[in-house]
Simulated scan of single mutants.
Amino acid sequence: MTFALQINGSARQFDTPRETSLLHLLRNDCGLNGPKYGCGLGQCGSCTVLVDGVAARSCVVPAHGVAGRHITTLEGLGTRAAPHPVQQAFIDAQAAQCGYCLNGMVMATVALLARVPDPTPKQVRAELSHNLCRCGTHLEILDAVQRAARLCAEDRP
């Protein structure tokens, strides 16, 4: 099946079998390692990407099902020299241990802050409740989201 996607701002053409997941396409065809394979069932959140700005579990999204849409992965947020405010907040809060959940937590946070610029701790917990952290850095992650909200507010006019 042939279709086009916008991935991290670049137009790309693909010809893949109908059953190819977006995660498989991003990792294997595009070489993007931000989204991780975790559970394969859309339950852990490690594969989260943004589809037109909305958080989506790429392991259960058929790649052809998002044809023509804008996909943003962790690699599309910022750079090592100029990280996205959410990435910087996670670094500053030392929110990662093993880092496996980090992609999903960061991407879910970006989506949350786009919808709710100043979320309450209850809103943050609800938004991230379906993203699993195996290391138990939940308190640091919550701190990172609050830091990110402040950093993003500084960037708004």
Results as ranks from 00 to 15, higher is better:
114 A>T: 13
102 L>K: 00
31 G>I: 12
116 V>S: 02
141 I>L: 11
123 Q>K: 02
92 D>G: 00
36 K>C: 11
21 S>R: 09
133 C>L: 03
46 S>G: 14
128 L>W: 01
121 P>G: 06
7 I>L: 04
78 G>I: 12
56 A>E: 14
49 V>L: 08
79 T>N: 09
148 A>M: 09
118 D>E: 15
139 L>I: 12
15 D>P: 01
134 R>S: 03
139 L>G: 08
54 V>E: 15
85 P>V: 09
34 G>R: 12
64 H>V: 15
149 A>Q: 01
83 P>W: 07
15 D>I: 00
145 V>S: 10
51 V>C: 14
52 D>F: 05
99 G>W: 03
146 Q>D: 07
35 P>M: 06
100 Y>G: 04
13 Q>R: 15
69 R>P: 08
74 L>S: 11
52 D>Q: 12
75 E>G: 12
106 V>G: 06
52 D>W: 10
97 Q>L: 12
147 R>E: 07
2 T>D: 14
148 A>K: 08
121 P>R: 06
77 L>C: 07
56 A>V: 13
125 R>P: 01
94 Q>S: 13
142 L>A: 11
30 C>Q: 15
111 A>H: 02
9 G>Y: 11
50 L>W: 10
81 A>I: 08
117 P>G: 08
148 A>Y: 10
28 N>M: 09
134 R>K: 03
52 D>I: 06
52 D>Y: 06
56 A>Y: 02
107 M>T: 07
85 P>I: 11
136 G>D: 07
69 R>V: 00
125 R>T: 00
128 L>M: 02
126 A>Y: 01
44 C>V: 03
126 A>I: 01
153 A>K: 13
152 C>I: 07
44 C>S: 02
138 H>G: 00
23 L>R: 11
88 Q>H: 07
9 G>W: 10
117 P>N: 03
112 L>H: 04
57 R>G: 05
146 Q>C: 05
59 C>S: 12
10 S>I: 09
77 L>R: 13
41 L>T: 13
72 T>R: 14
95 A>I: 04
126 A>D: 12
108 A>M: 13
136 G>A: 08
97 Q>R: 06
99 G>Y: 02
113 L>E: 05
104 G>H: 02
35 P>S: 04
6 Q>I: 10
4 A>S: 15
7 I>F: 08
113 L>D: 07
89 A>S: 07
87 Q>R: 08
74 L>N: 10
75 E>W: 12
71 I>T: 08
37 Y>D: 06
74 L>K: 03
90 F>Q: 07
137 T>G: 02
73 T>D: 11
17 P>E: 13
129 S>P: 06
58 S>Q: 07
153 A>D: 11
66 V>T: 05
94 Q>H: 14
139 L>H: 10
114 A>D: 15
121 P>C: 06
119 P>W: 10
134 R>E: 03
130 H>W: 02
109 T>L: 09
82 A>Q: 15
17 P>W: 01
17 P>D: 15
144 A>F: 04
139 L>T: 13
96 A>S: 14
121 P>Y: 09
100 Y>W: 04
103 N>F: 03
57 R>Y: 14
136 G>T: 10
113 L>C: 07
98 C>L: 06
115 R>E: 15
137 T>H: 04
97 Q>F: 05
113 L>R: 05
52 D>S: 05
45 G>A: 04
61 V>W: 04
80 R>G: 13
125 R>M: 01
75 E>N: 09
25 L>E: 01
34 G>M: 13
70 H>F: 05
34 G>W: 00
68 G>F: 07
150 R>Y: 00
114 A>E: 14
47 C>T: 06
43 Q>V: 02
